[in-house]
Simulated scan of single mutants.
Amino acid sequence: MIRIEPREAPSRRLTIGVPVASALLALLLAAIPLTFAGANIVEAYQEMAKGIFGSMFAFTEMLTRATPLIFTGLAATLAFRAKLWNIGAEGQLYLGAMAAVIVGTGWVDGPPMLLIPMILIAGALAGALGMAGPAYLKTRFGADEVVTTLLLNFIILIFIQMMLEGPLKDPMGMGWPQSSPVVDNALLPQILPRMRLHYGLVIALVAAVIAHIMLSKSVWGLKLRAVGENAAAALHAGIGVKRTLMSAALISGALAGLAGVSEVAGLRGYLTTDLSPGYGYTGIVVAMLAGLSPLGVVIAALFIASVFVGADTMSRAMGVSSYLADLVVSMSLICVLIGGFIARFTIKMTPSNKKASATDSGAA
C-alpha cells in the first residue's frame, strides 16, 4: 500500500536542489524534440551557450530580457506567498507601461532627476490599481482571483488597443498603433554604451533585495507568510488577513507595473500592443522555479532569459524552431511542480490490511 505523508521540514539541500535539478532536467528533456528535429544535440547546446556568453552583446541581451522577468517574478512571488494567485501580471505590466507613456511623453516637463522617478511611481501606481479590483472582490465577496485577474488581462489589452488608436496614438507614427515616444529626459539611462541594457535591471535587483528583506525580516513579511500558511490561524492570532492580502496585492501589481515601465522607458521608448511577449505569464514560471524566493527569482529569471536568448540563436544557426524555448520553459515548470511535490511529501510503502490481518492470525 502506498502512503503519501508530508515532510516535517524539507532540508535546505532539498529546497535549493529541486529547482536546480528541475532546470537541468528540462534542458536534458529538450534533447528529445531536438533529436526529432534532426539537430545535433551537442552542437545545438553549443549554439545556445554561444548565444548567451559568446559576446558582450549577447550577454547584455540576456540581462535585458531578464529585467522584466525579475519584476513579474517578484510580483508573482509576493502574491503567491499569501496564497493570492495573481495571474494578471500581464495586464498590470501594460497598465504600468501606459502610465509611463502618459507621464513621459511631454505631459510634464523637467530634468531626468524629476521625470524618471515620476514615471516609475506612475507605473507602479497603475499596476497596483490593476490588482486592486480583483483583490477587493476576493476580500469582500470571496471571488476567485484566478478568474478575475486572468479575464482582466484581456480587458486591459483591449483598452490599451483603444487608447493606441485614440488619445495615445502617435500622430507621426504613419498610422501604426503606437504611442508617442517617451521624451529623452524620461528614458532610463543605458548601463553600457551602444548596448540595450538599461538601469531597469538595477532597479529590478534592488526590488528583489527589498522584497527579500521585507519578506524575511519585517513584521509585514511575518504576517504575509502566516496568512499564506493558514489564514484562519492568522486571523485567530489577531492578524488582519484582509488588510495583509490587500497590501500584498497592491505591491504585487506595482512590481508588475514597473516591468512595463522598464520596457517602455528603458528599451522600446514607446508603447505598442506587442510590448510583452508574455512576460506576465512567464513570471509565474520564474516564481515557481525560484521556490517563491525573491533572491531566487533573480537566478530563475536569468535562466529563463538564457533559454529564450539561446534558443533564438540556435534557431537561426541550425534552422530549429524558436518555439523550443517555450517548450523548455514549460518543461521547467512541470519539473518544478513535480520536484516541489517530492520536496514537500514523502512516499512510503506500507503492508496492506489483508497482509497485516493474515500475519496477526498466523501469530495467534
Rank of each mutant, 00 (worst) to 15 (best):
V103T: 10
V103I: 13
V103W: 12
T105L: 14
G106C: 10
G106M: 08
G106P: 04
G106L: 11
W107P: 03
V108N: 13
V108Y: 13
D109W: 14
G110L: 07
G110E: 07
G110Y: 12
P111A: 11
P111V: 06
P111S: 13
P111T: 07
P111D: 12
M113R: 14
L115I: 06
I116A: 03
I116N: 02
I116P: 02
P117M: 05
P117V: 01
P117Y: 09
M118P: 02
M118A: 15
M118T: 08
L120D: 05
L120A: 06
L120C: 09
L120N: 03
I121G: 00
G123T: 03
G123K: 06
G123R: 06
G123E: 11
A124P: 08
A124Q: 14
L125C: 02
L125M: 04
L125R: 01
L125F: 09
A126W: 11
G127T: 07
G127H: 14
A128M: 09
L129R: 01
L129G: 00
L129C: 00
L129V: 04
L129N: 00
G130V: 06
G130Y: 10
M131F: 14
M131Y: 14
M131R: 04
M131E: 11
A132M: 12
P134Y: 10
P134Q: 07
A135H: 09
A135Q: 08
L137F: 08
L137W: 11
L137M: 11
L137N: 00
L137H: 03
L137G: 00
L137E: 03
T139P: 03
T139N: 10
T139S: 10
T139V: 14
R140H: 08
R140F: 10
R140V: 06
R140G: 01
F141A: 13
F141D: 09
F141P: 04
F141T: 10
G142P: 05
A143D: 09
A143N: 05
A143F: 13
A143L: 11
A143T: 13
D144A: 07
E145I: 02
E145G: 01
V146F: 15
V146T: 10
V146A: 15
V147C: 03
V147N: 06
T148N: 05
T148E: 12
T148P: 04
L150C: 02
L150P: 00
L150V: 05
L150R: 01
L151T: 04
L151E: 08
L151V: 06
L152G: 02
L152S: 05
L152W: 07
L152K: 04
N153S: 05
F154R: 11
I155K: 01
I156G: 00
I156A: 01
L157M: 09
L157P: 00
L157D: 01
L157A: 02
I158D: 14
I158C: 07
F159D: 02
F159M: 13
F159Y: 10
F159I: 11
I160C: 06
I160M: 12
I160G: 04
I160F: 14
Q161A: 15
Q161P: 03
Q161K: 15
